[in-house]
């Protein structure tokens, strides 16, 4: 469960898919690099779990969707065969994009052995803002970068970003809380009385505790069984009909 190949000059890393996100980020930090995802430093969530379940990247606006971080992979199919997808470069359009097909498939089409990930220069500073929900919704399109948000009783939003807000936006909301070099501030808000986490989906009830996982879109892949092409894709991957058992 280690880094297999780190290329600082190319900002790519090949990793064992069972390595934890936190361990990877910690190792990358020593090389002034990072993966462009906001993660819980105390979590042992493996990379395969983060990437394979169609979750939401809380820093999507800054660094893209989770699937955008994955350049290539080595996968095990249900028939036991191993395949390689993608390329170890940030751009490749050779053939069908099997990496994106498999990422987010909830491990139903393939299990990932290794992942090749795109890295970013480490940004040590985080900026936090607390603004009203109304302001956020009204002015969100002015943001330099979209940010992660947690709601304080649905009235306020705490924003955590590597980027400073645009000045014209700050003039409107006048709300900078300050900057820190770690995620401690978010943990502080976790312990604040009355704080509830807002689900990323407005139709879901707020989570009673601050739970990092609740901030990520739960996998919608379960519905993919109903996809007209699900069986077709399974057969494309394993023409003899082998399937992974559903946990």
């Amino acid at each position: 469960m280690n880094i297999i190949d780190l290329s600082c000059a190319d900002q790519t890393v090949v990793v064992d898919a069972e390595m934890s996100v936190a361990d990877l980020q910690q190792e990358l930090e020593e090389h002034a690099l990072m993966l462009g995802v906001l993660h819980d430093p105390a979590s042992s969530m493996p990379l395969s779990d983060l990437f394979m379940h169609g979750r939401h990247n809380m820093w999507q606006g800054s660094y893209g969707y989770l699937r955008d971080q994955v350049l290539a992979g080595n996968w095990r199919l249900a028939n036991g065969k191993s395949i390689d997808t993608g390329a170890k470069v940030v751009k490749s359009v050779a053939g069908y994009d099997l990496t994106r097909l498999l990422i987010g498939s909830g491990l139903r089409l393939a299990k990932c052995n290794t992942l090749t990930l795109r890295l970013r220069p480490l940004r040590r500073e985080l900026y936090y803002y607390r603004i009203t929900l109304t302001d956020y919704l009204t002015y969100s399109h002015y943001e330099l970068q979209p940010m992660s948000a947690i709601a304080d009783g649905h009235q306020h939003i705490i924003l955590a970003s590597h980027f400073k807000l645009r000045r014209d936006y700050l003039e409107v909301v006048d709300c900078e809380l300050g900057s820190r070099t770690s995620l401690d501030l978010l943990r502080k808000f976790k312990d604040a009385p009355g704080l509830t986490a807002m689900s990323s989906r407005p139709d879901s009830p707020p989570h009673p505790d601050f739970d990092w996982n609740s901030w990520q879109y739960p996998s919608s892949a379960i519905n993919d069984f109903a996809l007209p092409h699900f069986e077709q894709l399974c057969l494309a991957l394993c023409p003899n009909g082998e399937r992974f058992s559903i946990e």
Binding site: G54, R55, H56, Q60, Y65, L66, R67, V93, Y96, D97, L98, R100, L101, I103, G104, S105, G106, R108, L109, Y217, S219, S220, A221, I222, N223, D224, L227, P228, H229, F230, L233
Partner: peptide, 23 residues
């Protein structure tokens, strides 16, 4: 006629949208 992906966040589990891009 089919719709692939999601208008809000693009995530849709098995990513037919991603398969389609570049096909």
């Amino acid at each position: 006629v089919e719709t692939w992906g999601h208008p809000a966040h693009g995530n849709g589990g098995i990513d037919l949208r991603g398969l389609f891009c570049g096909s």
